[in-house]
Design a binder for these strands. Sequence first.
DNA 1: GTCTATACGCCGATAGAC
DNA 2: GTCTATCGGCGTATAGAC
Lengths: 198, 198
Amino acid sequence: MDQEKDTHTKTEIHDEILLAALKLFAEKGYFNTSLTDIAEAAGIKTAGAIYHHFKHKQMIATALYANILDSLNISIDEIRRKNQKPFEQLHGIVDLFFKLTDDAPEVMQFLLILKINEFLPEAKPLLDTAAFVKIIKIIRTGISEGDIRNIDPLLANAYFFGIIHNTLRMVLTGALDKKAEAYQSQTWLIAWNAIVKK
Amino acid sequence: MDQEKDTHTKTEIHDEILLAALKLFAEKGYFNTSLTDIAEAAGIKTAGAIYHHFKHKQMIATALYANILDSLNISIDEIRRKNQKPFEQLHGIVDLFFKLTDDAPEVMQFLLILKINEFLPEAKPLLDTAAFVKIIKIIRTGISEGDIRNIDPLLANAYFFGIIHNTLRMVLTGALDKKAEAYQSQTWLIAWNAIVKK
DNA sequence: GTCTATACGCCGATAGAC
DNA sequence: GTCTATCGGCGTATAGAC
């Protein structure tokens, strides 16, 4: 939102707090992370200083959630712009998720593992979010174009991303020991096959 | 474990506390549930009284987790006893999960939605649990018997139960508005098809 | 076994000096 | 903008009367 309001250190520290919080929330969970933890991890010595950047703890999580969803939304727009067919678009989104799992696991932890509305009761459920609404829309288009079998789009979404997300969840928790990339092509095939019209 | 030590009220109250806790944990999460909440929901007026039944809050969650896994394990043994083929055994397990989702949603919330090691850091991950080890074993057998395609059993598990669990998760959160039963046969087919050898 | 009362600690949040 | 200091509250947990 206001990333570029000025070039002073304020926004840098702001971002460092967010980064530290993301890491800690992903690692220990929201409730096991104190503002003191966040301050320390952000290179600040005292928790009080955080209040010059965020009204309260929840706002940190809210900002994180918004940022993540925002950049996800942008990435999905890009994918939709570069690819026409639902097949290609879903493929691009799966690529993105696998890439994020290896390159920014905390982000994927936040999206796939944390129970967000436990600490952000007001937050929209993921599925009501711009990014995920677009995913459903892609599936809907795939159905009407005859690529994807004719079932409830929400169900198709549950099946397709059930496979994708569950695999990534196991990578994130260490139950699968290789990088996400190692499972990508195989998992994509299975997931697409689960919803494709034959 | 010690359900039948005697027939006095002690174990009844013990169970009522567990029941109340299960409901509240499933509804609000562990950290948003105070012992006062649990006492009240269990028909006790004061939080202090709980300490005659459990050493501390964590022990309530630990006992819950153990009970749920225990009865799940027993159910799975039964399913394995009554059915020979991996196909039938997995079918039985899926039946069980769908049934539990409609009849005991809190239990499924606990298993599928709560991030258990956030409040029970010592607890075994689900996949290391007797019940789930057996599920993997069934898949492994299915592979060696040629029913299930020859991939890493953990991956097959991720795919199969990714579909099942994600569907049930959406029922539990209300994203899908019908009872789990309404999606069962279709979902089973898709999930089995994702791992079956063709 | 349950109650009242209370101790204790931690954490979120604020005030004010620097 | 960060620090020290501190408040206030909640939640866990304990002690002791009934």
